[in-house]
Nucleic acid binder design. Structure first.
Length: 587
RNA sequence: UGGGGCGUCGUCAAGCGGUAAGACACAGGUCUUUGGAACCUGCAUUCGGAGGUUCGAAUCCUCCCGCCCCAGCCA
């Protein structure tokens, strides 16, 4: 792990004497600002951003948007840099478990902070010195009001606040008190350090905000060395400055904090004054994004953990089968702006399909098997059928798949009474088995009691090797299949959206997001049959099950007993037709 | 009834005084041994509303309407 103590992003002298543009384009309002700054030679042509997560939870797709923005901009500018900085100012909520997970996620997404891994806690000494400076300037004071009293004194949205009776404590007394706080002489809540700004400000953030509070909790990095911790507004602005950040990009809810951000930097003798720019956070339809809600899903057991494939967390998406490329493309497509929006998950799904279409090897898997006996095929004959691994990529080559007299096909691919436009298998109809032969259904065997179809009898046409039709007859349907004697049994987990409504965050009718959970967000199929080549598929690898969708091999897989997660289904135009037929009555 | 933001196609989103990009979705079609993919076509006479300025406005001005955020010793 790189040492971060001595190289905390010092502003390199003479780092850039002329603007460096790199590939940066003004695609969005933030890049437009950066471009303009570069042209004006602001910051000496230097561009430095940062991604500042608090290590109190797992990263989700919303963070990915921010990561792609911050690391993206830095990468697009010649000499641009993006730091990874943990905003670890609240030991009660934070944990090393999260810092490690976050680092892994950022790396997985494809970004590199090189040796610039920082922690706000690296700056605690410096931050403390800044606080002392503020006191000496009479711009900060130790307030001994209780938390409740402070709230009361703060006023409301429409009424100004009142000044704390401790507001005009002498400098020496403030200094002594702060020293005492730092030394652990007081209990939590006894005192806080506040900035002395304006209790009548219409911006509540400016009503003498707390900048240090006593917290006697062990910090995951500094241990018990400190018992006072700086608040976000103070720590963040100054950390940005210490690292020489030029553009401090954050989400909209911090817009009201910008005057405070600037206030600290304008008063203190700091290395530089970064520009804070706010953009709208990502909202995705049919999902929730707040850490609180995600945590609740995990704690209440509604999902199996942070990496449950239904979670919008990066670990969840990864396990589901999403690739870093697809997430980066998605981030690019959604754009960056300031208006609140709800992005359609379909766009995310499109992004994976697009990526996986090009790279996922194709394979045959029967999810809901029904037996097919080729009555005119020799009993013990086994053919090795050649199949293309990826029609989008001829370099992917071919493979052999065993074919024999008894096969499995998808139960859905047979209809005893086929609806209009159904060109799969039905009594008397012909259909092609992918890469193999054309078969015709000549008999249906049912369970006497339940009426369930247990077996289909078909004949195969030996002249149609490889699925060709030498006589030129056209066979519309092509089915995937698997040889019963050779297939491997597999578990397949079919995921669907976690929520039933586009915006589960909407509480206007008194319901909460938990009320909108989709009871069918996970369907586990245990009797699936896949090609023998998949017996020992490597966890994490990705496949396309032909005619079904994209699947990732789950870590729960065991030798000879693979488990697959459906990443996303293929577009299914038959499903659309069928739905339309049902909706429009007959035909 | 305080302050800060935002309102352009179903969903994102360009546009920055010269006459509405693109993507997803959707609808048709071509092709096809994945009803996949690919490809083609269609999809806002109109930019929250009303006035005004201008030869000309989504872009400028005025008023109005709607939505989001802020009263943690959270970030």
């Amino acid at each position: 792990m790189p040492d971060t103590k001595d190289n905390a992003g010092r502003i390199e002298e003479g780092a850039a004497l002329k603007p460096r543009f790199g590939s940066l384009q003004p695609k969005d309002f933030i890049r437009a600002i950066v471009c303009a700054d570069l042209e004006a030679n602001k910051n000496n042509g230097r561009v430095m951003t940062r991604f500042p997560p608090e290590p109190n939870g797992y990263l989700h797709i919303g963070h990915a948007k921010s990561i792609c923005l911050n690391f993206g901009i830095a990468a697009e500018v010649e000499g641009g840099k993006c730091n990874l900085r943990f905003d670890d100012t609240n030991p009660a909520k934070e944990d090393v478990e999260y810092v490690e997970a976050i680092k892994a996620d950022v790396r997985w997404l494809g970004f590199d902070w090189e040796n610039r891994l920082y922690y706000a806690s690296d700056y605690f000494d410096q931050l403390y010195r800044y606080a002392v400076e503020l006191i000496k300037m009479e711009k900060a004071y130790v307030c001994s009001l209780s938390a409740d009293e402070i709230r009361e004194y703060r006023g409301t949205l429409t009424e100004p606040g009142r000044e704390s009776p401790y507001r005009n404590r002498p400098i020496v007394e403030n200094l002594e008190l702060l020293e005492g706080m730092k030394a652990g002489k007081f209990e939590e809540g006894a005192h806080v350090l506040r900035a002395k700004i304006d209790m009548a400000s219409p911006n509540l953030n400016m009503r003498d905000p707390v900048i240090y509070r006593i917290r006697k909790a062990a910090h995951h990095r500094t241990g018990a060395r400190w018992c006072i911790y700086p608040m976000y507004d103070f720590a963040h602005a100054l950390s940005d400055s210490i690292e020489g950040i030029t553009h401090s990009i954050c989400t909209l809810e911090f817009e009201d904090h910008r005057p405070l951000y600037d206030w600290f930097l304008d008063r203190l003798n700091v290395p530089c004054h970064p520009q804070q720019i706010e953009f709208a956070r990502l909202n995705l339809s049919y999902t929730v994004m707040s850490k609180r809600k995600l945590l609740e899903l995990v704690k209440e057991g509604r999902v199996k953990g942070w990496d449950d494939p239904r979670m919008p967390t990066l670990v969840g998406l990864r396990r589901r089968g999403y690739t870093p490329e697809s997430i980066r493309n998605f981030s690019e497509r959604i754009g960056v702006a300031k208006r609140d929006s709800l992005v359609d998950v379909a766009l995310l799904e499109h992004s994976v399909r697009e990526d996986l279409n090009l790279r996922a090897p194709r394979v045959m898997a029967v999810l809901n098997p029904v037996r097919v006996v080729l009555v005119n095929y020799p009993e013990d004959r086994v053919e090795e059928i050649e199949a293309v691994n990826n029609p989008e990529d001829f370099n992917a080559g071919t493979r052999k798949v065993p074919f024999s007299r008894v096969l499995y096909i998808e139960r859905d691919d047979f209809r005893e009474h086929p609806p209009k436009k159904f060109f799969r298998l039905s009594p008397g109809s012909e259909v092609r088995l992918r890469y193999a032969y054309i078969i015709k259904c000549v008999g249906v065997v049912k369970d006497e009691k339940t009426g369930e179809i247990t077996e289909l009898h078909c004949t195969y046409d030996p002249s149609t090797t490889g699925g060709s039709t030498p006589d030129g007859r056209s066979v519309k349907g092509t089915l995937h299949w698997v040889s019963a004697a050779h297939a491997v049994e597999a578990e397949v987990r079919l995921y669907d959206r976690l929520f039933l409504v586009p915006d589960p965050n909407d509480e206007t009718d008194g319901r909460g997001f938990m009320d909108y959970l989709n009871p069918d967000s996970l369907k586990i199929l245990t009797a699936c049959r896949v090609e023998p080549g998949l017996a020992d598929a490597t966890p994490g690898s990705l496949y396309q099950f032909e005619r079904h969708g994209y699947f990732s091999v789950d870590p729960d897989s065991a030798q000879g007993k693979p488990v697959f997660n459906r990443t996303v289904g293929l577009r299914d135009s038959w499903a659309k037709i069928e739905k339309a037929q049902k909706a429009g009555g007959a035909v």
